[in-house]
């Protein structure tokens, strides 16, 4: 019996994922209403649930894809994978106010620049403080602080050590997780309540998964504005990481 249920879940993986995520959403919305009187968004609770399930899945399987590595939940990997995620992000653009987005264009560019340089400097300083003194390692860890894709792309291009690569990826993933969970907590403090600040937020935070999750948990109407800038961030990071940033580090450290 149990074996047959398992079989259905594996065979109908995406359909099963819809059911599982629907159940998580329902539970989260109920908790939001019941225990917080709606003050904490249901979607924020759902995202924390998702991360907790990812942690449990990672412990169970020892894999890298959280809950999606458990065979019966493999559909989660397809549903939350880059393909459908990007498809849904593009769909939110239908709700964008053109004038507002165009006016904030320059601010978006400025925030993209800062959002690439600031994390890199922080990552480099921390790497130096922990005793890394070669340009390749320092650049790779700094790039990981930009996003968890920029880190390994840069590290692979420079031929970084595999432990340094692992640190770089972990930094990027933790950054995404903190952005997802932390954004709703600080949103009011940093003035994140209008399309302009959402575009600045997208460019500065960068990591698409972090921004996508953080804004969904804060205020869904801000999602498309943040996504508009954030989706340029990884590409720019991959452009400057192994080139300008690496050359600058090599020049500085000899």
């Amino acid at each position: 019996m149990l074996h047959m249920i398992e079989h259905v879940f594996i065979e109908q993986s995406l359909v099963a994922a819809f059911g599982v995520v629907g159940a998580v959403m329902w539970l989260s919305l109920a908790m939001s209403r019941r225990f917080t009187a709606g003050r904490v968004h249901g979607s924020a609770i759902a995202i924390v649930f998702g991360l907790a399930l990812a942690y449990a899945g990672g412990l169970m399987t020892g894999g890298q894809k959280g809950l999606a590595d458990v065979p019966v939940f493999a559909g989660i990997g397809l549903m939350g994978g880059a393909m459908l995620r990007d498809f849904a992000i593009v769909a939110t653009a239908f709700e964008v106010d053109v004038v507002e987005a165009r006016k904030a264009g320059l601010l978006g560019v400025l925030s993209l620049g800062l959002g690439t340089i600031l994390p890199f400097i922080v990552g480099v300083l921390v790497a130096l403080a922990f005793g890394y003194h070669d340009a390749v390692s320092v650049t790779t860890i700094g790039a990981g602080a930009i996003t968890y894709i920029v880190g390994p792309v840069t590290g692979a291009a420079l031929g970084a050590d595999s432990t340094v690569m692992a640190l770089s990826i972990a930094t990027g993933v933790l950054k995404a997780v903190i952005v997802m969970v932390g954004t709703p907590l600080v949103a009011r403090m940093i003035g994140l309540d209008n399309p302009r600040s959402a575009m600045a937020f997208g460019g500065l935070m960068g990591t698409v998964s972090g921004v996508a999750g953080g804004l969904a948990a804060t205020d869904p109407k801000l999602v498309p504005y943040g996504a508009l800038t954030a989706t340029f961030h990884t590409g720019i990071g991959c452009l400057v990481g192994p080139s300008i940033f690496y050359l600058a580090m090599r020049a500085l450290m000899g």
Binding site: F18, A54, G81, V173, M180
Partner: peptide, 12 residues
């Protein structure tokens, strides 16, 4: 919901 599924497959 897709973002929740995305969260559930991060390498936490």
């Amino acid at each position: 919901p897709i973002v929740v599924a995305m969260a559930a497959q991060q390498n936490v």
